[in-house]
Design a protein around this nucleic acid. Structure first.
Length: 106
DNA sequence: CGTCTGACGATGC
DNA sequence: GGCATCGCCAGAC
């Protein structure tokens, strides 16, 4: 699957530690495309199943359409299982769980 | 090579 | 806080 960009996106996603989340914009920034959040989103849309794509959320800490993962609340359920906490608003507690990349060796 | 498309983001109302 | 618009750029066709 030599999708160039997409492949790199998948690389980053696969490195997300359990209990952490990352935003599309962050991934884009890591890959050198600060404005490429949409590309990342598109990449996730066709992402292979084996990726922990449920750890990729938008900047508001909200998850993508819940039915994308095969059912309503599936993504949230999986995240909670990994120790991710949610706010009263139903959004992920980004301040606590946003993944800060230690090294940009991509 | 032209167009359309988006799991986004920032801005403005 | 919710909704509309614009910008953004790699793929698919």
């Amino acid at each position: 699957m030599e999708k160039g960009f997409f492949k790199r996106v998948y690389e980053v996603v696969s490195k997300i530690p359990t209990g952490k989340v990352i935003t599309y914009g962050q991934i884009a920034g890591i890959l050198g495309m600060a404005k490429g959040a949409r590309i990342v989103g598109y990449a996730m849309r066709i992402a292979p199943d084996h990726l922990p794509n449920h750890r990729v959320v938008n900047k508001q800490g909200e998850m993508a359409r819940e039915n994308i993962f095969g059912g309503e609340g599936i993504q949230r359920k999986r995240l909670e299982k990994e120790g991710v906490t949610f706010l009263e608003t139903g959004c992920i507690d980004m301040e606590r769980h946003v993944w800060v990349i230690s090294e940009e060796s991509f």
